[in-house]
């Protein structure tokens, strides 16, 4: 256990190793570590943000779906209402048309009947006149018996 030059040698070697470590070992590693720390922090932040975005997007989707659903029910209801309305309208229209046709047909029938009755009456009057002429053997003065004839026709 002698103290000797080894002491100085060790001191020099120690100094050299420390300087080497200080210049070429520590800075790159410490730099890389700091950079990685930053990257990880950024990554975690980004992940947090993405999770928040996802949650908000999900709730938005939920909301929109709900809206769409209510819209659909509304539309369906409207359509149903509209269709029944259309059917009703068509029925009404058809009914009115039918009544109208019926009414005009009845009017026509009444008119025809009246006409027939009228012509029949005229014919009867004529026949009555002819009959009377045959019976009387003379001509019935139309104008003189006009009133009589009208009364007759009235009675038929």
């Amino acid at each position: 256990m002698n103290l000797n030059l080894t002491l100085i040698g060790q001191l020099i070697a120690f100094t050299i190793f420390v300087i080497f470590c200080m210049k070429y070992v520590w800075p790159p590693i410490a730099g890389a570590l700091a950079e990685r720390q930053k990257k990880i922090a950024e990554g975690l932040d980004a992940a947090d943000k993405a999770a928040r975005d996802l949650a908000s997007a999900k709730s938005q989707i939920e909301e929109e779906l709900k809206q769409a659903r209510t819209q659909v029910t509304e539309l369906l209801e409207q359509a149903n209402k509209r269709s029944s309305q259309i059917v009703e309208e068509a029925q009404d229209k058809a009914r009115a048309e039918a009544e109208k046709i019926m009414a005009s047909a009845q009017a026509q029938i009444a008119q025809d009947a009246a006409q027939a009755r009228e012509s029949l009456r005229a014919d009867v009057a004529k026949l009555a006149v002819i009959g009377a002429e045959r019976v009387l053997g003379a001509t019935v003065d139309q104008a003189a018996h006009k009133k009589l004839l009208a009364e007759l026709a009235e009675e038929l």
Binding site: P27, A32, K38
Partner: peptide, 13 residues
Amino acid sequence: CWLFRVGARAAHA
């Protein structure tokens, strides 16, 4: 020194 220099050379984030 060699071991840690190898590490320092490979250092990345």
